[in-house]
Simulated assay, not measured.
Amino acid sequence: MFPATPTLRERELAKAASLTEAVAEALRQRGVADRLADLAAQTGWATFHHAAGAWLDDPSRSLDAHLLQAFDDLRDLSAAVLTS
Rank of each mutant, 00 (worst) to 15 (best):
M1L: 07
M1V: 10
M1Q: 13
M1P: 01
M1I: 10
M1C: 10
F2C: 05
F2N: 03
F2W: 11
P3Q: 06
P3D: 05
A4R: 03
T5I: 01
T5V: 04
T7F: 11
R9D: 06
R11D: 01
R11A: 15
E12C: 01
L13R: 13
L13Y: 09
L13Q: 14
A14D: 09
A14G: 08
K15Y: 09
S18I: 04
S18R: 12
L19M: 11
L19I: 10
T20A: 14
E21D: 12
E21I: 05
E21W: 10
A22P: 10
V23I: 13
A24C: 02
E25I: 01
E25L: 14
E25Y: 03
A26D: 11
A26H: 05
L27C: 11
L27Y: 02
R28W: 03
R30W: 00
R30K: 11
R30Y: 07
G31H: 00
D34T: 06
D34R: 05
D34F: 03
R35M: 08
L36Y: 07
A37F: 01
A37V: 07
A37N: 03
A37H: 10
D38N: 10
D38Y: 12
D38E: 08
A41C: 11
A41D: 05
Q42S: 12
T43M: 07
T43N: 10
A46N: 10
A46T: 11
T47K: 06
T47Q: 15
F48N: 09
F48D: 08
F48A: 12
H49I: 01
H49Q: 06
H50Q: 15
H50I: 11
A52V: 12
G53M: 04
A54E: 02
A54H: 07
W55Y: 13
W55N: 07
D57M: 13
D58Y: 00
D58L: 03
P59M: 01
P59H: 01
S60L: 03
R61K: 09
S62D: 00
L63G: 00
A65K: 09
L67M: 09
L68C: 01
L68P: 03
F71E: 04
F71N: 02
D72M: 10
D73P: 02
L74K: 11
R75L: 09
R75D: 05
D76K: 15
L77V: 13
L77F: 14
A79H: 05
A79T: 07
A80E: 13
A80N: 11
V81A: 12
V81G: 03
V81F: 10
L82S: 12
L82C: 08
S84T: 00
